[in-house]
């Protein structure tokens, strides 16, 4: 019934104010990059949520494999000494 568009999917990143990173807000369909940016403004910044936008074609994003999640992120596990909270002996010492 409806004619098919097959417009690419774009991921939208919004910088909420100067000094902060762009953060993923969601996605949308648009025929090209320029329209994607304009649609992103209308869709994700109707209440002053942003001062800058990025759009990236979803198909251009490379992600880690969810099935390998456990082995891929295994390395930091059990390495508590990478956190300041691991060091207890110096507790109570000022400005440390």
């Amino acid at each position: 019934m409806s004619q098919q568009n097959n417009w690419p999917l774009w991921e939208v990143f919004v910088r909420s104010s100067r000094g902060l990173s762009h953060v993923h807000a969601g996605s949308l369909h648009a025929p090209d990059a320029q329209m994607a940016v304009r649609n992103a403004r209308d869709l994700y910044t109707r209440r002053n949520e942003g001062v800058s936008l990025w759009v990236v074609k979803s198909s251009d994003i490379i992600s880690s494999d969810p099935d390998e999640k456990d082995s891929f992120f295994e390395s930091p596990q059990g390495k508590d000494y990478r956190h300041a909270t691991y060091y207890k002996a110096s507790e109570g010492v000022k400005h440390l």
Binding site: M1, S2, Q4, N6, G26, S27, L28, H29, D42, L43
Partner: peptide
């Protein structure tokens, strides 16, 4: 806008936007 957020979420489950739109129309 809410419709569009939700269509995006539905699409991640594997049904295309055009198909979803068609189901409504």
């Amino acid at each position: 806008g809410h419709g569009l957020y939700l269509y995006s979420a539905a699409e991640t489950l594997g049904t295309s936007r055009d198909e979803l739109n068609d189901q409504l129309l």
